[in-house]
Every structure is written in structure tokens, then in C-alpha cells.
Amino acid sequence: MAAGSAGAATDQWIDPDDGVRYPAGEVHGWQPGRNETVCGLSLHRSRLRRFPHVTWADVQPESGRHAEEVREVCRRCRAGLGGRRDDRGWTRVNPRP
């Protein structure tokens, strides 16, 4: 995961407990200081909202942190930021000798 990566999303929700806004809808990876997502979408043209206070790891639905309203995570951004690098998508059941 790239250091300093944050999220950009199509929508937002506001936590009633602390009043902080969090991403909702489709989430993309974004690095503060850039005008585009990791997958190359323009933030302005795509009408994505920036969330510099929410890290990329916290917008992943499996993290359970600030991703309560996240519906989809961009596959290309996840690959670009190393979303599943530690997880193996397969297991060897009967290895050859």
C-alpha cells in the first residue's frame, strides 16, 4: 500500500456520533496533492469527493472501519495500491512430490 493514500468516492455519509463525513458508494484510491485517482479518473470530471482524513485501508469493506456505506471498491485502484497482495486467491490441495 502506498503511504499517504486516501479515498475518493461517489457519495458520502455523516457519522451521527461525531459528525465526520465518510465515503459511500463507489470508492477509488487517491493520493492527496493529485487531481486524479490511482486508476486515472479525473476527480472533477468524475464528480468524486475527496476524503483526505480517511486512509485507503479504512475504506475497504473487510476492514469494518469507515466503510459502512461503501458499495464497491475500484478493482484497478485496489490492484494499484496493493489491496490483495498478502491474500492468496488459491490454495494448493494436493501438491506434486
Rank of each mutant, 00 (worst) to 15 (best):
R92Q: 14
E26M: 11
R92W: 06
G33D: 09
W30A: 03
G7H: 00
G19T: 04
E72M: 11
H66T: 04
C77I: 08
V73Y: 06
N94A: 12
N35R: 11
H28T: 00
E26P: 00
R92I: 10
P97L: 10
V59G: 01
L43W: 05
P23E: 06
R78H: 14
Q60H: 10
C74W: 11
G7C: 09
T10K: 01
L48H: 03
Q60V: 10
R92C: 15
V70C: 11
L41Q: 10
E36I: 02
N35C: 04
D86N: 14
N35H: 10
T10F: 01
R76P: 00
E68Q: 15
R76L: 13
R88Y: 07
V70W: 12
R96H: 13
F51L: 05
H44Y: 04
V73E: 06
A9M: 05
D58H: 10
I14S: 07
R65A: 15
G64R: 08
D58V: 00
C74I: 01
R85Q: 12
R50T: 12
D86R: 13
A57D: 14
M1K: 00
R34F: 03
N94K: 14
E26R: 12
C74F: 09
A24C: 06
V27R: 09
D18L: 05
E68P: 00
R88W: 12
W13D: 10
P95L: 01
G4R: 10
Y22R: 06
A67E: 11
H44P: 00
A57I: 04
R45Y: 08
G80Y: 09
V20K: 06
V59I: 09
Q12P: 02
P16V: 12
W56F: 08
H44E: 14
W56T: 01
A57H: 13
P61F: 10
A3V: 04
R34L: 01
Q60F: 08
Q60W: 09
G82R: 04
P52L: 03
E36L: 04
S46G: 05
R71T: 13
E72S: 07
A2K: 11
C77S: 03
D15I: 02
F51N: 06
E69S: 11
L81E: 14
D17P: 00
W90V: 12
T91R: 08
